[in-house]
């Protein structure tokens, strides 16, 4: 089964979804740089119909943390 969030990260970072997991972060994913963070935010906001605050963006340092933030904001299909 595919995961919406992992697929989104794979698409934006241009890496295979199989290379990503919940612990993926800028430290262990070379493609995840500052610009990628911006593009991830834009894609997440569009995909999950949410608006992220600066502090929420800064705290999304792993895919698991991004998922937790989105679940808190009421995004569907992520749990």
């Amino acid at each position: 089964m595919t995961d919406r969030l992992i697929d989104l990260f794979a698409n934006v970072l241009n890496v295979p979804a199989s290379e990503l997991n919940e612990d993926s972060s800028p430290a262990n994913t070379p493609a995840w740089d500052s610009l990628a963070t911006i593009n991830l935010v834009l894609a997440i906001e569009q995909e999950f119909k949410v608006k992220l605050r600066t502090q929420q963006i800064m705290s999304m340092s792993t895919i698991a943390l991004a998922r937790a933030t989105l679940i808190k904001l009421g995004a569907a299909g992520l749990a």
Binding site: S34, L35, T37, I38, N39, V41, L42, T54, I57
Partner: peptide, 11 residues
């Protein structure tokens, strides 16, 4: 500087 500015323009 970079992140807020890029975020604003990107949005």
């Amino acid at each position: 500087f970079y992140m807020p500015m890029v975020m604003t323009f990107a949005r």
